[in-house]
Amino acid sequence: MTNILDDYALVSPLRYRNNWLKLTIITFGLLMGVSSQSFILPFTVAFCMSFATVHFGKIPVGFYLKLLSAPAVFVILSVIIIAFFFGSGTELFGFNVFSYRFGINTGGLDMALLVFSRTLSGMSCLFFLALTTPMVELFSVLKATKLPDSLIELSMMMYRYIFVFLEVAWGIRYAQTVRLGYKDWRTSLNSLAMLATTLFIRSWEQGEKIFISMSARCYDGRILFFEEKRPVRATELILTGTYFSAILVLWYLTNDISIF
């Protein structure tokens, strides 16, 4: 029903690499992509991160492409609006609707292409993190930051229960589907409401039970986890350094290039 990217991250060969290195790489990519003024740099970042995900992370190419197309509807709609309404310059093409003039001009098309490339680079950075680093690893990073304990506790417990409830939800959904619970629009609405209610009640009761069982094990508001030390290897450092400097040089060279 839904692809949980975490499943892929758990078996990824890059899982046991240093978390901070991976976070640095994606933060760098995100910031470079979003602040670039030319479409060349974001496309390059997107290509590098996709290559790293598919090649080093051993993610099937077909699956990866399907993931990249997930935000397509939203992105395409918004990019079209930007192309029509944004920017100035010579008009490339246009038409009249009820005496309104709709046209794409060079400025708008440049902007649309830039936004599209930024989204692509951002998504590929995000996928790199999502497909190589399971949430379990990120909790140790979260703990090292000075975020409030209650927030981190809440996220960890939530994470744990997402999978429990997903299984319940899928089970119920299967059972409803084979009993024609989704045969038409009205029935599906009712079935979905029943599913959600059962889930709510289950989760409520589960919540009460966890509190009892955790209190019995001396829970005092902090769950402690075992953390491994994973030093950054020299080859990784060199590769990352080369990638960073290449991107920075490219940024310096191409920052004012656009198609028009």
């Binding site: 209650s150 506790e153 997402i162 989760s203 409520w204 919540g207 509190f211 955790m214």
Partner: peptide
């Protein structure tokens, strides 16, 4: 706290 956590998980699954 556990109750809020399951509520959050519920919202995610929903």
């Amino acid at each position: 706290l556990p109750l809020l956590a399951v509520a959050g998980a519920f919202i995610f699954v929903l």
